[in-house]
Design a protein around this nucleic acid. Structure first.
Lengths: 229, 229, 229, 229
DNA sequence: AATGAATGAGGGTTCATTCAT
DNA sequence: CATGAATGAACCCTCATTCAT
């Protein structure tokens, strides 16, 4: 059953307009996300956000009192429970941990890296200092659960005798860093990277390298035949 | 013994002014670095830079024609200028390539990562798109030489039979990404990282991991006894 | 009956604002013309233009993207736009060419010379070098069409056997120079002219002199009875 | 006997420097004239004037309290008794008045039009409104004597039966206007003129036209054989 | 609720003028 | 006298925010 408001059925003529009205904030948030990610907070003009959402500048200020409030809404609105699905997949996974790590990286790329969700990370990194509450929120909702998930994977590998890890805390970041890098690369490529970089191949090369570094001699044999993508 | 120029003792009346004039660019560069890193390029007002350096707005423009030129001078002074030394150290280095890589990462951390210079990278990532000339300059003066240096190190390892590298382009980024990560971590710590992260230990763990991934079986034995930091 | 739009009567509440909006560009153009002519282009501050038109600085930039564009609009509105009418009058004119020339000079005086538009010419002469784009625009929109029109009149005279012209290019300027002179005279009277100069009589004397110089013996008889002004 | 100051002979070592010192104002005035004529008052930077005169910005302000004072000095300094020589030549001239007028125009072009003296006219026209005392001065020293001279030439022609002039006052300007035009053309060519204009030929064509307009039928025969330039 | 015209506080940059040396 | 480093008042233009309609 659709979640449209009752009023719509009472007065069908008003339906479309009413629904648009309720959709406004969402359209504005989407437009703002695109622009903030692309141009940063300072360089994004509210007028452009409004135009992209198909409304006038004044209307935007009906929904968001200031530009800063809009920015905060953009970030909070786009940070959702991204990790529910992964949690389940982690529990259900039956293969080897290297495979699991590979799988996880690949799906992360598809679900986050490639989508606009990765733009939020860029935003937080770029503007976080000026929005401390946002940064806290992000850490609580994204950083913590994400790190916990990866940590559990690494621990699974150790437990199963597949990985050899001296310093868990920092090995963790050896996995995270490249993903962060890829997100930034997507949104700031012009500034950072010179050569052509193929994210998929990069992920492949990366997991090869990292895994060779992590794996115990026995487990390393598995790596010689990586599953075809 | 102070390092004031001799002329000062010959003509003490001119001392104060002359010394100020010579010191100006440095003071301005320092003030600019602080503010650029703290607030970003767009949000930093030149007047504030001038004020922090103890001069008026007009004076700043005596030394730097535009805000962009000021930024470029900051980059040159704090990062780009370091490559000369690294180049030389690379040529003079006589140890094994894994050691070289470790040494390079450690000095990079001391000279860039730990200093405010690392904030420049964050700034470029955040605002590069809005200031294409800045991004171009940064890429030309920092990214290119930096990547070239690392690439030559990796190639040295391959040549000497110490490294086994399938995909040079992407392995390159496997080295760069963690350093980038550390820089971002320092300047967006509140946003990214939850646990305490000790950069030195992280670098150690990282190079262990990466090097174990890179090294040929023979060379790997070297890794067991890392040089005392 | 006033020429207010009908919509105003349908929605009187919107009247004042709407009318103001439509009138703005005109008010701004008038204010700009006054100030440009009085103080020159460089010395005129846009804020003063806005103030004279009764709006704020920002409002001016809603209608004209830059100060230069404002100037171009002033030129178009006050001079360049007049050539359409002159072109038509030229095509429709049925009298002799000497009469045509006289008529053209007189209307030029009424429509440009007497109005503040003539101050634009002085401005271009004084500042054209410093604002090449303005000079280019003026030449394209005013000088070229104006010269073309006069040239066609002179050629018409030659074709009809009324004029005898050895050196067309320079004869052209023999006609233009006095008009230029009159414009300068009006806007620099204190500097140039001592005696009282009656522009109308000057034009009369001028066309007498020039025409006597241009006309073939046969055509010259026509001149003895100039049409009453 | 040279007009160097006595001090120079008392202390020859100081001679060069002293003479330079006395020459300073002149060098500054020359540099300022060039630049004011070229770029106008507002667009001329005092620093550039100083540089062109080979001194520092501060030195300029030792001689001229403000930029405006410099401008006024430039104009007054360059307006001299230009008409003494012409007066004499007028009295000595023995040919026909048309020849005299031609001669006068040609020498005017050589002595004024082609030299920087014509720049002063442009300056007065362009900036006169903002410097009323200067304009008065110019009118008294230049405009009045110049007009008187021409008027006397025209009257000579009438007296000798060579010219037929209905309206002396305005015919006067028929002669002046083209000369004014030529001066402006030289200093604002880019703004005004499209085609190539050869001043010498223009003066020729002009005097032909004007003279044909002025001359009585009898005198006109003289014009058929203009003296070779 | 929606509009978009209007505002005005800055921001980067220039340059006449001052003044310590 | 001469210098040139330093100043700060403007200037053009932008854009978040307001408010009459």
């Amino acid at each position: 059953m659709p979640d449209r408001p009752v009023s719509e059925f009472l007065c069908p003529l008003r339906a479309k307009r009413a629904r648009r009205k309720e959709a406004r904030p969402g359209e504005l948030l989407q437009a703002a996300l695109d622009l903030f990610v692309d141009k940063g907070f300072a360089a994004t003009r509210v007028e452009e956000v409004a135009a992209r959402a198909g409304v006038s500048k004044g209307t935007l200020f009906l929904y968001f009192k200031t530009k800063e409030e809009l920015f905060q809404a953009v970030v909070t609105h786009n940070i959702a429970g991204l990790f529910v699905q992964w949690e389940q997949e982690f529990l259900d996974f039956e293969g080897s941990t290297p495979e699991m790590l590979r799988y996880c990286m690949r799906t992360w790329w598809e679900r986050v890296g490639l989508t606009q969700a990765s733009g939020i990370t860029k935003l937080i990194l770029a503007e976080g200092r000026n929005f401390p509450e946002l940064a806290d929120f992000y850490r609580r909702e994204v950083v913590k659960p994400g790190q916990a998930l990866i940590r559990r994977m690494l621990e699974r590998g150790v437990t199963r005798g597949e990985f050899e890890i001296d310093d868990m805390d920092h090995t963790l970041y050896a996995v995270i860093a490249p993903m962060l890098f890829l997100m930034l690369w997507r949104h700031s490529a012009n500034a950072c990277v010179d050569a052509e970089l193929d994210p998929e191949r990069y992920l492949q090369a990366l997991s090869d390298t990292v895994l060779r570094g992590l794996c115990t001699p026995g487990a390393r044999t598995t790596l010689s035949s990586p599953p075809a993508s």
